[in-house]
Design a protein around this nucleic acid. Structure first.
Lengths: 332, 332
DNA sequence: TGCCTTTCTGTAAGCGCTTACACAGCTGAT
DNA sequence: ATCAGCTGTGTAAGCGCTTACAGAAAGGCA
């Protein structure tokens, strides 16, 4: 990044305006002039400085994304869809993980200064900052969070699928349930799942919180739970990682799944399919969440739309072995 | 991003230079002046434009990362370590996935224009572009690739661990092997693994290529392989995803692992631990690869170092159930 | 009191581009 | 022959900061 538009202009014997016009295809340029310019560009290996372009255009051509943590497969998948579409739309993606960070406020503000729009997971950004971003009219899309004013929200359907799952488990004959990985923030995905499940099972299901939604936390909590006198017959987990932890705990305690205990997850991450018994879970359209977020953001940035949109995507119940025996085992 | 340093200066009754000095802490500012400025900053909610700062400073305070695909857990983990350290060092991270992209050349060049340094996985970037980046003195760190001039390289140890793995399998008594997911590019990680394994097993191991390193490809290739008349006793896979595919194939064909067939992977991704039988594999220090890459890049960017460094990190053999029975089963 | 330092602040020159505006030279219609 | 209307090009004003340099004010010391 050394050669500037001035050197190209000098070499081609034209003004910098002409060079710019030639390269961007704006305004008329005589064929001969164009050639001279392109030749000079070629010879000098000129690439316009992104900084100069952005400053002059007043836009970054970049999107930001804020997630709590990339460790789980869920966020990765969403990011994947997001990056793909953003890139198609000519935008770079700048990432920010808030996990274990102090100064989240500053980090997010810095990020906001580098991009034209921001996608944010759930409640990773403090509310006052969200308000500030909304106030400064930063285009915003939230994924996995309840609707709020001044920004798009995007989530996958939770309540209905939770109910379907609960009913399926009732069909297996279970009567004593636990919900492992109880909701931490109201309004987020897990909260909705819990509400949905409870609306069907009522007092038959008990909420068991875990500190994080991780394998380790699921394992510890499940071990404690399964050792208790009246252990549940089925454990509905807030996500697959917690469920995988529960499977490990059951295995360690010598409990056969699904014969002595049913376990279900949520998200359908890769390991869910490969665990044995394979994990019954609810598949979220993760990649599509990311892709849609990128498109929504684009609409907001370009001004194609200026009223917030709130979208809910459908999910799919993946019946596998961990919740009980089915007429014909499906190993998807 | 509306209010500029000029408005702050006017409101505080000082010049923009003083505002800048106050905010950056460069140069002396009288206590009273400082207060006036800070007050104005507060009232106007001023945040310096990243673009302006970068242009004036001549640096982006951002790092790029180029990966083929974020789908697998391996890249995610590396990215995680990278982002964490980059962020600590005050740099944002701009990502670029090359999977399924035409115009990789342009995308990478655009990325290069947005950052102060670049981390690149393996052979994701065409050689001529690499040469060009080296020529323009862009700080560069390659991960999982053989050393090359003008850039840092960072990889985890492959050959020795491959040999250790091969010897362990010989110890189990296996004599007929296949290497599933044969190397595509010479010089990358998988190539080294193959070389290492073969150096021990010689003609007893056969290379079986797959189109990609994915579960699906591993599954298909393994199915074909295991149906053949003289099927191998042990399948060494180029990575865990291929190995998981092989496990599925074995399951489908009714072959018991490890009694009738041993399978091993590489990387120790999350699903490896949760598969049943759990997958014997070689753990790479993925997160550390990312973290070190970020630090190395920082040295190159700041000029703390200007000679390339080539580092190899040690790996760990994770013995689990899929390669055969061990005295005391370890479920790590 | 006079002069030299220090301390503080302002001016202005970039950083590398885009683009509104002005202008020159042509073409073709009147 | 005249002039409106193009086309093609250059000039210069930003875009929002940082910082070298210069100048003013104030304090210290002989």
């Amino acid at each position: 990044m050394d050669v500037t538009i001035y050197e190209v202009a000098r070499r081609a014997g034209v003004s910098i305006a002409t060079v710019s016009r030639t390269l961007r295809g704006t305004g008329p340029v005589a064929p001969k002039t164009r050639e001279k310019v392109l030749k000079a560009v070629e010879e000098l290996r000129f690439t316009p400085s992104r900084l100069g372009v952005s400053l002059a255009e007043g836009r970054h051509a970049a999107n930001g994304i804020v997630f709590p943590n990339l460790a789980g497969p869920y966020y990765t998948e969403v990011l994947l869809g997001y990056e793909e579409v953003a890139s198609e739309l000519g935008r770079s993606v700048v990432i920010l993980s808030t996990k274990g960070r102090s100064r989240v406020h500053d980090l997010v503000k810095d990020l906001a200064g580098r991009v034209d729009g921001l996608m944010v997971f759930g409640h990773t950004v403090p509310d006052d900052l969200v308000a500030e971003l909304v106030r400064m009219r930063m285009p915003l899309v939230f994924v996995s969070r309840e609707p709020l004013a001044g920004a798009d929200t995007l989530r996958s359907e939770n309540t209905a699928s939770a109910r379907a799952l609960a009913e399926h488990l009732l069909g297996h004959g279970y009567r004593r349930f636990a919900f492992l990985g109880a909701p931490i923030a109201t309004g987020d995905d897990v909260d909705e799942r819990w509400q949905g499940v409870r609306s069907v099972l009522g007092a038959a299901i008990e909420a068991v919180p875990t500190e994080h939604y991780t394998v380790e936390c699921g394992y510890q909590a499940a071990k404690a739970l399964l050792r208790a006198p009246a252990r549940p017959e089925a454990i509905v987990c807030s996500d697959d990682e917690v469920a995988l932890g529960a499977l490990l705990a059951a295995e360690e305690l010598g409990l056969a799944v699904p014969d002595e205990l049913a376990v279900t997850g949520w998200d359908d991450i890769m390991a869910a399919r490969h665990a044995r018994p394979a994990l019954t879970t609810i598949r979220q359209p993760t990649r599509e969440l990311g892709a849609r977020a990128a498109r929504a953001l684009d609409e907001l940035i370009t001004g194609a739309r200026d009223t917030p949109k709130h979208l809910v995507l459908p999910t799919e119940l993946m019946l596998r072995a961990s919740c009980g025996h089915h007429p014909q085992e499906e190993t998807k």
